[in-house]
Amino acid sequence: MPKQSKIDHGIFLLVVAVLAWTVPGAGHLVIKERKRAVIIFVTITLTFITGLYIGSVGVIDPVGAWPWYIGQMMASPAVGVLGQITRTGHYTSYGKPADIGQIYTCIAGLLNLLCVISAVYMAYAGRGEIIGEDEDV
């Protein structure tokens, strides 16, 4: 592969990774995996919103619960905006709803990390060339 082509491919992989992180499923959409993109977008968004609904936006706490915040940030950089809003301490969440909300939002973020890796790997290997069992067409 020529050097310029390698650089272009590297930039493309970077774009796929950034898009996949910014909007869940967008990385797969770029590599023309539409069904996968829709499934990922709907599932991760619903999981994250369910977490916010149960525990309120107070579950995004970059100060008091920063380890959870790292996981939540994997869902999208938009979580950082929510983090800035909740940093004021006006939205608090305690007890069981906070626990469940944090688990939901953090798992949504970690699942998106899995999808980012999947999108980059599929872009690297070529669409449909992901490691796994062959399926009947």
Binding site: R36, I40, T47, I107, A108, L114, C115, I130, G132, E135
Partner: peptide, 14 residues
């Protein structure tokens, strides 16, 4: 959610 995302990333063709 975990089951859906795992399968969405795992299967070769959907």
């Amino acid at each position: 959610s975990v089951a859906v995302i795992y399968k969405a990333t795992k299967v070769r063709v959907i």
